[in-house]
Simulated assay, not measured.
Amino acid sequence: MLSLLLAITLAPAPAPADTPAVGVTVAPGRVFIEKGASQYLNFDFVVQNRGADSLEVVRVEVSVYDRAGGLQVRKLVNQNGPSPSALTLLPDRLLAPGATGMIFNPFAEFPREVELATLRYELEFRARGGEGQAAPVVVHATVAPEPYANRTALQMPVDGRVLVWDGHDFYSHHRRWNWTHPMLASHCFTSNASRYAYDFVVLGAADSTHAGDGSSHEQWYGYGQPVRAPAAGRVIAAMDGSADDGQFDLSRLCADELVAYGNAVVIDHGGGEMSVLAHLRQGSVAVRVGDAVAQGQVVAAVGSSGSSLFPHLHYQLVTGVQHGGEGLPSYFPGARVRRGAGWVPAPNGQVDSGDIVQGR
């Protein structure tokens, strides 16, 4: 998907003085616990500066409680030290008056043994550019995450050895999708459907991604390889007319968010889960809207259409395919990951950035 790392940015004028100085909203509204080798929390804070001064984020702290109210873990990033953690994890920390921006939750991973019943966050801001030394502004947010198990039994949508070139870990471009940025907002984005996405790249000899210099699609081992339905369902979208040139029409995004994916197949599995298989090879889509597909059925081939840097399969499980749809965790119970000289089952079927995966 689009390789954009976006920052806290400008928005409308400040609100009246009698409103709270900072507004914080957790997005999405339902926070899921993704379980693999660890527990992962993938959500963001949408922040509104309602005051007259620029505000700098100087501390984010989380306290984790179990169901009995006992403190399990407390973590923070702050201003301490010559190279403070707040600078490392929150590089774009200045919020102008009237601005709306996004802070990516910096506490994305916890051991499996920690009970994540309630997480209480403190976000501390300090004024910059105002008169005198204003008192810090501390805002609280509470999160009650829910474990997520797929309603649909999924399998890997590509065969053979596969590199998860980019998944949805804390540093992934899928994860760092700041839809409050003016460019994305102007194209009608209000959510992150790629929150739990993967870019799957088929590997060849010596675990290489391509032969030669990779300048042509045909040099990539995955180009033209089968793309399979990860589960049974009904096709609700199928596009096949885009060239494998990494291009798409930005002006069409408000009308159809799927434009960015180029050639794509969307399968509705029922139960609120839909698979998006994207960047498919032009002319390879073998299904039509309304078709019923079986798990493992070949529906297309790997390509490089839409917002694609090179041949790969972009896969995500979502609640909806247009603006406002959100990503869902997706697990592949039959997947194995390379560990040492061998292969082991992927913990809970969860894979992510950097994993070498054997699906079938």
Score class of each variant (00 low, 15 high):
1 M>V: 09
3 S>M: 15
3 S>N: 14
8 I>R: 05
9 T>M: 09
18 D>S: 04
19 T>L: 02
19 T>H: 01
21 A>Y: 02
26 V>C: 14
28 P>F: 12
29 G>M: 13
31 V>D: 02
33 I>S: 01
35 K>D: 15
38 S>K: 14
39 Q>A: 05
41 L>E: 15
42 N>Y: 04
43 F>P: 10
46 V>A: 11
47 V>W: 00
53 D>R: 12
54 S>D: 14
59 R>M: 15
63 S>P: 04
64 V>K: 00
64 V>S: 00
66 D>H: 04
67 R>C: 09
68 A>S: 15
69 G>T: 12
70 G>S: 02
73 V>N: 01
75 K>P: 03
76 L>R: 05
80 N>L: 04
80 N>C: 10
80 N>T: 13
86 A>Q: 00
87 L>M: 14
88 T>Y: 09
91 P>I: 15
94 L>P: 04
96 A>I: 06
103 I>N: 03
104 F>K: 03
107 F>C: 09
112 R>M: 09
116 L>M: 03
118 T>V: 01
121 Y>T: 02
121 Y>M: 06
127 A>E: 02
128 R>Y: 12
129 G>R: 08
133 Q>G: 04
134 A>F: 11
135 A>E: 14
138 V>E: 06
139 V>M: 01
140 H>V: 08
140 H>L: 14
141 A>G: 07
143 V>G: 01
147 P>C: 11
148 Y>G: 03
150 N>T: 05
152 T>E: 02
153 A>N: 15
158 V>W: 01
158 V>H: 01
162 V>F: 05
162 V>W: 03
163 L>F: 02
164 V>L: 02
166 D>T: 11
167 G>Y: 05
169 D>M: 10
169 D>K: 08
169 D>V: 11
170 F>Y: 15
170 F>R: 14
171 Y>V: 13
173 H>G: 00
181 H>V: 03
182 P>F: 04
186 S>V: 00
187 H>Y: 10
189 F>D: 01
190 T>Q: 11
191 S>H: 08
196 Y>T: 09
196 Y>V: 14
197 A>F: 02
203 L>M: 06
205 A>Y: 05
205 A>M: 15
208 S>F: 08
211 A>R: 13
212 G>W: 12
219 Q>A: 11
229 A>L: 13
230 P>F: 05
230 P>H: 03
237 A>P: 04
240 D>L: 01
242 S>F: 02
244 D>I: 00
244 D>A: 01
246 G>L: 01
253 L>F: 10
256 D>V: 04
261 Y>E: 08
263 N>M: 14
264 A>T: 15
265 V>K: 04
265 V>N: 11
267 I>T: 10
271 G>N: 12
273 E>Y: 11
274 M>H: 08
276 V>D: 00
277 L>S: 07
277 L>Q: 06
279 H>Y: 07
279 H>Q: 13
281 R>Q: 12
282 Q>D: 09
287 V>L: 06
289 V>L: 07
291 D>N: 07
293 V>Y: 05
296 G>C: 10
298 V>R: 13
300 A>Y: 13
300 A>V: 15
309 L>M: 07
310 F>W: 14
310 F>N: 05
311 P>I: 10
313 L>G: 00
316 Q>D: 15
324 G>P: 03
328 L>P: 00
343 W>H: 15
345 P>N: 13
345 P>C: 10
349 G>A: 11
350 Q>R: 13
354 G>H: 10
356 I>M: 13
358 Q>C: 08
